[in-house]
Design a binder for these strands. Structure first.
Lengths: 128, 128
DNA sequence: AAATGCAATGTTATAACATAACAAAAATCC
DNA sequence: GGATTTTTGTTATGTTATAACATTGCATTT
């Protein structure tokens, strides 16, 4: 009887869970739901989330204290999240204009950007 | 002997304190320093901060859990914060290009924006 | 095979951030 | 002055995140 660990890392479990849910979730929400998968401490969740963020697979939505799966390959674009105050829907957009605006601001100020956070709270067009 | 309360509201005290410090501070940092001014509970700090944010006098920097004084009149611009990972310096910029990019994204998606959060982590040109 | 190194994970505690709910005091309005 | 509104206080608790130490699992080296 093998005592070998199931091959799926906790980070993978978290990633697959977030992929299935399709919306941003807080660390504790994830923890609550993945307790049944052998993850019992917030530490483990945060480690997994930090790893997934470092690998570019998920984003943290700062103003929601939540994490969500990255929508795709950014290339030269910057992700920007629209967060509806009414229904809670969060949509990630990739916008080249904003990427260019950042670049020109960076050239003006000499700031070497590596981690942008763009979130807009408002109302989506279903709720207006 | 008047028992009348000092006329300065706690919100004003917090605002003047943040103005003097010229850098973002967390609620608890503010609390610690203004304890001597008769502010003894986090509740009071958060109320003051929320009021100052509502009045447009300060901004919350989401990724730092910190608040800082607004740099001026925005008019049609959007504030964007450059946050240096090395020295911790935080600079607010007002950028018309980004405001315009937001507006055109909004027109494309139908999203009614009312509260943008723009923060960029990186290195300032003194630390590169 | 045993030892080593590193990544992943566990455990426990605590730090840091924020809000809820009730009450009281102070200021303002009529 | 009384009513109303705003500000503040108190207490408790909820939410988010990290620190610090330890163990386990796996791959590589000896």
């Amino acid at each position: 009887m093998s005592l070998k660990r199931n091959n799926e890392t906790h980070a993978n479990k978290v990633y697959n869970f977030l992929k299935k849910k399709k919306k941003p979730l807080s660390a504790y929400e994830i923890l609550k739901e993945l307790a049944s998968e052998g993850i019992s401490a917030p530490t483990t969740i945060y480690r997994a989330l930090n790893k997934l963020v470092s690998n570019g697979l998920i984003h943290k939505i700062e103003s929601l204290n939540a994490w969500t799966v990255c929508c795709g390959n950014h290339e030269n674009k910057v992700p920007i999240f629209e967060i509806c105050k009414t229904c809670g829907n969060v949509t990630e957009h990739l916008d080249i204009n904003i990427a260019n605006s950042i670049k020109s601001l960076s050239e003006k100020t000499g700031f070497l950007a590596d981690n942008p956070i763009f979130e807009i709270h408002g109302q989506c067009n279903n709720c207006i």
